[in-house]
């Protein structure tokens, strides 16, 4: 585990009740594992992150401020290995704003990511989804980085 990951998890440990910690912690680890190559490519990963749990075939949306001139990656992780998850980015008018998105299975879970180069400064919608999962509720976490 990288020092960066350890630090984030230490912060999360203070935040979360034990039960939630055990699962969102693992999902965050998956998101950060997906982020790792991009950190090496110069992306600064924020300490703040989002997390929760969702039944299969449901989505959640997050409104987030982005700045024109930056490039952003959003990395979603889940500790449920058999789940299928996704993250997509839309502008305030509801148009798909990302330039690429992918999903990738990991050794101990799942990851998905989306990259956006904002055409304007302002609010954007981050849509996370658990497309399918064998679990009743699937924990997820979403981290982001910029450069």
């Amino acid at each position: 585990m990288t020092r960066f990951t350890t630090s984030i998890l230490a912060a999360a440990a203070v935040l979360l009740p034990t039960q939630a910690f055990a699962t969102i912690d693992d999902s965050l680890s998956m998101a950060l594992e997906a982020a790792d190559p991009f950190v090496k490519a110069g992306f600064s990963v924020r300490e703040d992150y989002w997390g929760g749990d969702l039944p299969a075939k449901t989505t959640k949306a997050i409104v987030h401020q982005l700045f024109k001139g930056n490039e952003y990656w959003f990395w979603m992780g889940s500790d449920v290995k058999a789940a299928k998850i996704s993250v997509h980015i839309y502008d305030t008018e509801g148009n798909l704003a990302e330039v690429e998105a992918w999903t990738k299975p990991l050794k101990d879970g799942q990851s998905a990511a989306a990259r956006v180069v904002p055409k304007k400064t302002g609010s954007y919608y981050l849509i996370v989804e658990v497309e399918k999962s064998p679990e009743e509720r699937t924990h997820w976490a979403l981290a982001y980085g910029f450069k």
Partner: peptide
């Protein structure tokens, strides 16, 4: 403590809509 998302519109499963 952690910024958490909220309920949102449902999307078609398995495809990425160009507009929502």
């Amino acid at each position: 403590a952690v910024p958490i998302a909220f309920a949102a519109a449902s999307l078609a499963i398995g495809e990425t809509p160009q507009k929502i």
